[in-house]
Design a protein around this nucleic acid. Structure first.
Length: 267
DNA sequence: AGATATTCCTGGAGGC
DNA sequence: TGCCTCCAGGAATATC
């Protein structure tokens, strides 16, 4: 569920709490999530100080003082719980003991998340990724990629090789905002529509980050949990509701996933 | 290579 | 109230 804005919000929350902290102890409650943890992950993290936290796509890159990075992906249900007083959670998989006496816990019921340690800049999960939507991403780049694809536009903008960070929710929302039908073939999207898509995707992601940032203080104040933040959506999970144009929002299934859209205004 | 199906996992919702 | 089935979804992997 966390898409780019949620991961960026988590990055900011973790930065506030973690930068400059030394990891004094690591408790692994299991040996894998989606993938096995790297050999001796607990020992390799112990004694390290966190110097910087970056984001690439939906991955968090937690830089350590020896140059290595802890790679964290939240999958569907992953959360970092900061300043935890105790760990009784059923799905608390990893506990970090920090040098200020606090405890940070990685909790993930569905275990789709990833934790790994990388020494250099290359990683199997990162190397094939497409451009960052909030970086130097242009409509020309998008048009070139869509041109070659005969799948529905909704499916193609979910492809992390085309552009990163967009999940099911923002794909639906962006298409509604640009009035493009999710069923149109990617190769039939015009240059003008690409310009619109790029600018609306940048806008909606920025807005969501701003909203996440504003809820972060309150949200983290309650239980210190950093994970998924609900935002205001126009079409996602709103089957049967009225679209802003007056039409009725429908749900269809594309490649096994729900798409919410308005057939009246999205052409 | 590109398109599609399958897989991982648990909690929550809905049906009876 | 309880049990069953289905569904949610990120992204690697396999298969055609």
């Amino acid at each position: 569920m966390p898409e780019l804005p949620e991961v960026e919000t988590v990055r900011r929350g973790l930065s506030n709490s973690w930068i400059g902290r030394r990891i004094d102890g690591v408790e692994l409650r299991r040996d894998s999530l989606r993938f096995p943890f790297p050999e001796n992950m607990d020992k390799r993290l112990t004694g390290r100080t966190i110097v910087e936290i970056n984001r690439r796509a939906k991955y968090l890159l937690i830089k350590l003082d020896n140059g290595e990075k802890l790679l964290s992906h939240l999958g569907m249900s992953g959360k970092w719980i900061l300043d935890a007083s105790s760990s009784e959670g059923k799905h608390d998989h990893v506990v970090l003991y920090l040098d200020d006496g606090s405890m940070s816990i990685y909790n993930d019921p569905r275990r789709f998340g990833v934790l790994d340690i990388m020494a250099g800049d290359s990683h199997k999960l990162l190397d094939h990724l497409g451009p960052e939507p909030l970086g130097e991403w242009t409509s020309e780049d998008l048009f070139d990629k869509l041109n070659k694809r005969k799948s529905a536009i909704k499916i193609v903008i979910l492809d992390q090789k085309v552009v990163v960070g967009i999940g099911n929710i923002y794909a639906c929302e962006a298409l509604n905002r640009t009035k493009i039908s999710p069923t149109r073939l990617a190769c039939d999207i015009t240059k003008e529509e690409c310009e619109l898509l790029v600018s609306e995707i940048k806008k909606i992601l920025s807005e969501a980050i701003a909203a996440g940032g504003s809820t972060l203080r309150d949200f983290a104040g309650v239980d210190g949990t950093l994970g998924y933040f609900p935002h205001q959506f126009k079409v996602y999970d709103k089957e049967g509701d009225a679209c802003t144009c007056g039409g009725e929002i429908e749900r269809i299934v594309q490649s096994g996933r729900s798409t919410f859209w308005c057939p009246k205004c999205q052409k």
